[in-house]
Design a protein around this nucleic acid. Structure first.
Lengths: 193, 193
DNA sequence: TCCGTAATCTAACATATGTTATGTAACAGT
DNA sequence: ACTGTTACATAACATATGTTAGATTACGGA
C-alpha cells in the first residue's frame, strides 16, 4: 500500500490560512504554503487540483472562523454580539477580514451571505419586536454599514487603542442613536396614523 | 536633438489609472499600461524608474480625483457633500476606491489624510457651532465610519439601485439620527452641569 | 544635408508562480 | 523478503511580470 499520509488536507488548509493571515491573500502561493507546512509543494497539489481550489477552502475556513467570533457572548445582546464579533475578528485577523470581505473575488457573495445571517438573527432581540419588517431591515442595514466600516478601518490599523471595550462602546454608542431614532420614528408614525 | 515626445508622463499616468479603473490594482503592469497607451513598455520606463513609482502616481492622481468629487455641490451642506462625494466616487470608480482606500500599501495613510481633511471642513457647518471639539470629533468619526462602510459596500456592488439620491438619502438618514442624538446629548449635558 | 541626442521599439534576462513529470521510498498485503 | 501503490520530493516547463540592453529612428542644430 501507500506510505502513511504525512500532511492531511486540513493541515494544508490551516497552513494556507496562516499564510494569508501573515502576509495577505496575494502571498498565497503553492510554495509559501509548502514552506509553512515544512514540505514541498507536492502535498498541496495532492489535495487540490489548483491553487484556486485551495484559496476557496481558505475563504470557507475563514467564514467559519468569523461565524465563531460572532457567536461569542461578549454581551447579553445577541445582535450586539454579532457586530462585536465582526469587529473583533477584524482586530485579531485583519488580513483574513480583508481577504474575506474586501479583496477576494467572492467577497460580494460572502458579505451578502453574512448580511442574510444577521437578518435572520435580528428578530431574536426583543427590543425590535414592535418594529415592522421594513423598519427592522432599515435598522439592520444602517448598523451593518457602520459595523463593516468600523471593521474595515480596524483591519487597516486606523483605529488606535482599539480593543473589545472600545468596539462594544462604539457599537453601543451609534446603536443607541440609530435604534433610538428608529423607535421614536416608529412611535410617532403609529400615533399619526 | 531628440524626436518629439509621443507619450507624456501625464498620459502614462492616465493610462495607468484607466487600467486600474478597469481591472484593479493587480492588473497594473508595465505591459497593461503600454497596451492602453498603444505603445511598448519603453515610454513607461522612460518616465518612471520602477512600476512602484508609477503606482504611487496613480494613487496620487486618484486622491486628486476623489477630492474633486467631494468638493462638488450635491447639496447645500458642505459636510454632506463630502460624504456624498466619497460614496459617489465609490459608485462610479469602484476599483479606484478599492485601490485607494482598501487595498493599496498606502491605504492607511490615504484614509488618515482624508479623515483630517474632513475634520478641517467640519467647523464650516454652522449646525455644529455649539458643539465642543471632542463632540465634533466624535460625531465626525461616526459619520466617517458609516460613509466608508457605505462606500466599501457600494464599490463591491452590494447596494442595489444605488444612485446619487439613494446615497444622499442614506447619509441624511443616519446623519439625522446621529447628529440629533449628539445635539440632544450636548443639550442635556449643558443643562445638568 | 549630415549628425548626435534621446524617445521608442524589440528583444532579452531574471524572477515568481502555477502546474506537471519523474523519481523515491514507506507502507500493507502476500 | 518481495511487490505494488502512492504520498512526497525534486526538478522541470510554461507563463507573467519587472527590468534592462541594444537597435532604430525622428527631430533639431550644424
Amino acid at each position: 500500500m501507500a506510505p502513511k499520509t504525512k500532511y492531511t488536507k486540513d493541515e494544508v488548509v490551516k497552513a494556507a490560512v496562516r499564510v494569508v493571515e501573515a502576509d495577505g491573500l496575494n502571498a498565497l502561493t503553492a510554495r509559501s504554503v509548502a514552506m509553512k507546512l515544512g514540505s514541498s509543494t507536492a502535498p498541496v497539489y495532492h489535495h487540490f487540483d489548483t491553487m484556486d481550489e485551495l484559496a476557496l477552502c481558505v475563504i470557507k475556513e475563514t467564514q467559519r472562523s468569523l461565524l465563531e467570533y460572532t457567536s461569542r457572548p461578549y454581551t447579553d445582546r445577541v445582535f450586539l454580539n454579532m457586530g462585536t464579533g465582526v469587529a473583533m475578528f477584524a482586530l485579531e485577523h485583519g488580513q483574513l477580514y480583508r481577504a474575506l470581505m474586501l479583496e477576494g473575488d467572492r467577497s460580494s457573495e460572502v458579505v451578502r451571505e453574512f448580511f442574510d445571517t444577521l437578518e435572520s438573527e435580528l428578530p431574536k432581540d426583543s427590543r425590535f419586536a414592535a418594529l415592522s419588517s421594513s423598519e427592522r431591515r432599515g435598522l439592520l442595514r444602517k448598523m451593518w454599514i457602520f459595523t463593516h466600516g468600523l471593521a474595515s478601518l480596524i483591519c487597516a490599523g486606523l483605529i488606535k487603542d482599539c480593543n473589545q471595550d472600545y468596539i462594544i462602546n462604539a457599537l453601543v454608542d451609534v446603536g443607541t442613536d440609530v435604534i433610538g431614532a428608529t423607535l421614536a420614528k416608529h412611535k410617532s408614525n403609529g400615533k399619526s396614523s
